[in-house]
């Protein structure tokens, strides 16, 4: 593999790692506040993708110029983010909240149940086959400083970077972020108390919003969506969250990028059939040496189980 193609693979890895990271942040935030692996998150993202497909097919019947394209996609990302955020909050309030005091594995089953229901909704909504995202640009690649850059990948970065930046500001600079982080740092018991209820709602909304944005990025990147994509991306994103240290937001983003890179490079080196294996083998070997993930604290609360 020469340098140029290696760089190209890295570019692909970073773009796909970017939205995987955003989805992983969703897993990690929810885990941090209510101590739950939200298995349905991938399917929430999938439904966001369905909505953005509907919006984009309505607004972009023909390829448009890059600026308009970007604006439309940003609009779709915002809509689908809001949709996913609200849906996530509803799921939490109606399904998970009554189970806050249940044995730890019971809400896990509920998340799987929700995941099945959402997958079926997606199946009815867009049908069983792959659906193509509309062509957004006339030209698909453009030379920037002598390096060919795929416009789609560029667009993915345009979608992903602002939310990550906002999230950083939100968590670091605001009172809300500090209380969120303090909850994540103390125990699950805090989240059960009534006062933390609003924080939990906010967490679910943010995680859903990021997922919705990521779904548009994923659609633009992969160019098609289908009703099973949530399952596939969910597995990668959980892996990313655990690799980064579950509960840690920067860990999730770094984990996402690592998973994306491993995937792209293993596809180029070993062939497309070995992507999943390489990602999970790296995970297993890494956790055998560092059981708490990259950014995780060594005293994980998983030990309470």
């Amino acid at each position: 593999m020469d340098v140029a193609s290696f760089l190209e693979q890295c570019g692909i890895g970073i773009t796909s790692g970017g939205f995987l990271g955003l989805i992983a942040v969703g897993y990690t935030l929810v885990y941090g506040t209510v101590g739950l692996i939200h298995f349905a998150h991938g399917d929430v993202v999938m439904l966001g993708g369905c909505l953005s497909l509907a919006i984009l097919s309505f607004l972009v019947p023909l390829p448009v110029d890059p600026l308009t394209g970007c604006l439309i996609v940003v609009l779709a990302a915002t809509c689908s983010g809001l949709f996913c955020g609200c849906m996530n909050v509803c799921i939490d309030q109606f399904v998970y909240r009554p189970l806050r005091n249940a044995p730890p594995l019971s809400p896990l089953v509920s998340t799987i149940g929700v995941s099945f229901v959402l997958m079926n909704v997606g199946l009815v909504w867009i049908g069983p086959t792959d659906r193509a995202f509309p062509e957004i640009f006339l030209e698909s690649t453009r030379l920037i400083g002598g390096v060919p850059v795929a416009m789609a990948d560029f667009l993915v970065l345009v979608i992903i970077v602002p939310p990550v930046f906002c999230l950083y500001i939100l968590l670091r600079q605001t009172r809300f972020g500090r209380s969120l982080r303090s909850i994540a740092a103390i125990t699950r018991a805090t989240a059960r108390s009534g006062e933390a209820g609003k924080l939990v709602i906010a967490t679910f909304f943010i995680s859903g919003f990021l997922g919705g944005v990521a779904s548009v990025a994923a659609g633009v990147h992969a160019t098609t969506i289908n009703y099973q994509m949530g399952h596939q991306m969910g597995l990668y994103a959980i892996t990313a969250a655990v690799l980064g240290g579950i509960g840690s937001v920067p860990g999730a983003i770094v984990g996402g990028l690592i998973v994306g890179l491993i995937r792209a490079i293993s596809v180029a080196l070993l062939g497309p059939r070995w992507a999943i294996t390489s990602v999970f083998l790296v995970l297993i070997i890494f956790l055998a040496f560092r059981p708490q993930g990259i950014f995780g604290k060594s005293k994980t609360r998983g030990g309470q189980r």
Binding site: Q9, H221, T224, Q232, M233, R263, A264, G271, P272
Partner: peptide, 20 residues
Amino acid sequence: HVSIDPQAAEFKSFVGSVMS
């Protein structure tokens, strides 16, 4: 002659090697 993973979401990386 390459087999793909029929459950993968996309084949961008792979298509690069086809192109080359």
